[in-house]
Amino acid sequence: MASPVGIFAEELVDVIQYYLGWLLTIFKDVLDLILESVGGILTFPDPVPFIFALILISLLITKRLVLSLLIGAAFYIIEWMGYWDSAMVTLSMVLVATLVAVLIAVPLGIRASSGEKANPVIKALMDFMQTMPAFVYLIPAVIFFGLGAVPGVIATVIFAMPPVVRLTNLGIRQVPPEMNEVADAFGSTGWQKLTKVQLPIALPSIMAGVNQCIMLSLSMVVIAAMIGGGGLGGDIVNALSTIDVAVGFEAGLAVVLIAMTLDRLTQSFRENGA
């Protein structure tokens, strides 16, 4: 028996599905396409060339040889344990979820920073999104998008977005007032002020948000496996249902290695000021 609050939520989901179902279908197809192409790119090369390419990319980003070699080793371990395909599915879900989250969150953060009216509303929304238990998102996600990777990514986006919004908002608000005066005194338009002064100065803060977003995505991607997201999360869910310690630990370790790799890469983006 649900109270009016629960009944309202249920009705809302019904209404959305009834009237906006077509939009959701388009949305699903587009996301599916993106997910498949990213997955395709990631699984296109064999593991060993992929690892060499990864080492090279991390050299370019971090400019640290030892760290890059360790990242290569981490991915080699994933391959050696036999979780390469699962890992690539998880990685593509994380990348797509982060991309979508950042594309939505950064403009939202900018909006929140520019007005006192929007800020409390967005703040409350973020609190809701971040603290509502992650499993709850899975229910409407399944209703809207069925089973599979797409509802998993959607739920992940909702869960992982708030830190980017918050830290973008904070970063822009912390731009010294004198910097805003500089932009105005030289006759900048609002767009010039945003792109040439505020965003560059707020970039370290925004990148910290992106880093958080990736970490949250990874943890959520595993939960999303409950609705058929697949990947390493799928392996873990299977291991749980069969009480298989070996598989559970190996798949879990693979998640940790991917998380550390992505963390180090985004962190050095932040330190180098990108």
């Binding site: 910097m179 005066e181 500089v182 030289f186 006759g187 040439k196 002064v197």
Partner: peptide
Amino acid sequence: LRIARREKMSMVFQNFGLLPH
């Protein structure tokens, strides 16, 4: 106002106001 600020006047600030990036 923006055009006038761009071409007619400029400003020097107490804490320099240099863009750090």
